[in-house]
Amino acid sequence: MDDFYREFILDHYKRPRNFGTLENPDVTHEEDNPLCGDRIRIDLCLNEDRVADVRFTGEGCAISTAAASILTEKIKGAPLERVKAFSMEEMLEALGVPLSPIRLKCGLLALKVLKTGLYGLKHWPGEEE
């Protein structure tokens, strides 16, 4: 339990990094997790194939909010190639807590929003319809 809600996760939940919106984002995308009503929106400003700036808003549980916060820290300033290569495994590793199958969706919601926004994807790979 204390493993699950580690100080690290709670810190990102209570003081999310890069929280808010951008004025004229190049990419903006929002999705929700219909299971629990969690909602995340990510705005990106791009500059020469790099993420110049990133913000997120939304409402969600500690896991989905912390994941979004951590993700924005990871990709801010990063080249787009790096962002595109950022995997689910990396996301889960960055969270660093074991997630049950149901909570996996919380942990991966922000990454889904980011990738869907970047690729204009309709569906998320590996997700059943």
């Binding site: 699950f4 629990c36 009503g37 409402e59 969600g60």
Partner: peptide, 29 residues
């Protein structure tokens, strides 16, 4: 300040099974 899902997870660690979510009543939420 605590999302229903987190309440559910914390309670589960004490053996308490509750439901967290919209309960299939999204318009009501």
């Amino acid at each position: 300040g605590v999302h229903a899902h987190d309440v559910g997870t914390i309670l589960d660690h004490d053996g308490v099974a509750i439901r967290a979510g919209h309960h299939c009543t999204m318009p009501l939420m």
